[in-house]
Design a protein around this nucleic acid. Structure first.
Lengths: 112, 112
DNA sequence: TACAATAAGTTCTTATTTGGAACTTAGGTC
DNA sequence: GACCTAAGTTCCAAATAAGAACTTATTGTA
């Protein structure tokens, strides 16, 4: 079974996962909430490959979660911003954040 | 970059994703919240391969999110139940559910 | 006794996805 | 004219997932 097959699932959690259920997509969304909007920002912030970021941004745009907007005409340059539908994803990311803060503290591995 | 490399990330969202940031893991957790606990239930409910379920259950046990418990001695049979750490993941799944209900309604494709 | 069934996995081969680096395009700057 | 930036795309090798069959231990049934 491939992941897009979940999009017609009876369960709203499964349908949501068919869209955003992979780590890079969710990291891109996190970055959007942190105020990032440009391709290279997503690449360096997430550590994902340019290929993946390109793919995930396309899916998110197609799903209406973010929008592609030109911020420069010559040369043509675009940025990505959350739509209202995307904004409403905030509670999910906050739940992830809270769980991570509580249950996965960073181990400081060196130099005090 | 591989996904487990996110486990030491400064961002709690990224650390959480290093553990549960894939669709099958999250679907298994959903099933746990729905009261399922057995291997074959996870397989048929999620539609993932036995191989994947096996792998994801291992990771979740290792992370202390679920626990493996024997429910039969002869033959040895195990089931998986949420730990308290796992229970506390509920808000994240509820946020996914709410978002999905609102923004991804099921299209009825045939027979009224 | 033999035959099928159940549960929880593992193993195998093939297909799909991802990683990593280099290349492209369209202008701008020194 | 040589180099820089931003936003991608292309390529091939490596990792991961799909799908089906097999395993192990035990119980229930004809």
């Amino acid at each position: 079974m491939k992941w897009t097959d979940l999009d017609e699932n009876w369960c709203p959690v499964a349908r949501t996962l068919s869209l955003v259920g992979d780590r890079w997509t969710l990291l891109v969304l996190r970055d959007c909430f942190l105020g990032m909007s440009r391709f290279d920002q997503f690449v360096s912030s997430t550590g994902a490959t340019r290929h993946l970021i390109s793919d995930r941004l396309k899916r998110l745009v197609e799903a209406g979660i973010i929008e592609k907007q030109a911020y420069s005409e010559r040369p043509k340059r675009y940025e990505y911003v959350l739509t209202e539908k995307g904004q409403e994803f905030a509670p999910a990311l906050m739940a992830f954040r809270d769980w991570g803060k509580k249950h996965l503290p960073v181990r400081r591995t060196s130099k005090a």
